[in-house]
Design a protein around this nucleic acid. Structure first.
Lengths: 114, 114
DNA sequence: GTTCTTGCTACTGAAATCGTAGCAAAGATG
DNA sequence: CATCTTTGCTACGATTTCAGTAGCAAGAAC
């Protein structure tokens, strides 16, 4: 009874809700995991240490943070730099750039609620 | 001991990891819930019925789908049209448009893995 | 009437997450 | 040297969320 190894979802592999492993499905699986979007968001500026990142996310549990960071490192979206902490990779920054307009959208969105 | 009512996260209210309720934080909380991104993605085209949407997402459980749909309706991102099924609202389509470039990004991303 | 489909609720077990405690390593301070 | 702090992270039980299956009420088609 060996436990299945837990890793980040990978293109070509089966992921949640998709047997094809199409890249965009894999990405949606990865980004849809709790705290992932937030972590990327908090890394939009300078690199953050583990604890700083944890604090920035409002004190999420270190076990979950560590799991998410492992997945994001595995996916080459985040990297760990010695003496600096965690930072987005080049492609991680590209990904975040796609997400940047969400701020503006969310401001408009607020007004439509109440 | 009344249970707290379960609703979608709302701007101005406390959300996971943020006491300020800043719009973008609320949005990240909402989008980071399991299946939300995928559901939006599957609604990019024509409206889908509940069951069609469920099938498109690879057979996720109806209870979760219903919960997500309730949140997204509450957030005015998805609407239910009589005799058509579920569809994105206007602002829902705008939101998805922000996310559209993810397909292209994910294709590049794949090549960087292995 | 029966047979479909559709939208959804109910229920149980599994998995993910939370919250807290704490430890080993490295650096600063005395 | 000793001690204090910070940092990255692991362990563990409690809670929440999700998965998976069953099934029901309402409507349409027959």
């Amino acid at each position: 009874m060996t436990k299945p190894p837990k890793t980040a979802p990978r293109p070509g592999r089966r992921v949640r809700g998709s047997t094809t492993g199409r890249p965009v499905m894999v990405l949606l699986d990865l980004l849809g995991r709790r705290w992932v979007l937030r972590v990327l968001w908090e890394l939009r500026g300078d690199p953050l240490t583990f604890r700083a990142l944890q604090a920035a996310c409002g004190g999420l549990s270190p076990s979950v943070l560590n799991a998410r960071l492992a997945e994001l490192r595995d996916s080459k979206i985040v990297e760990q730099r010695p003496d600096e902490g965690y930072a987005l990779t080049r492609q991680g920054r590209e990904l975040l750039a796609q997400l940047a307009p969400l701020t503006a959208w969310s401001e408009k969105w607020v007004k439509s609620l109440d």
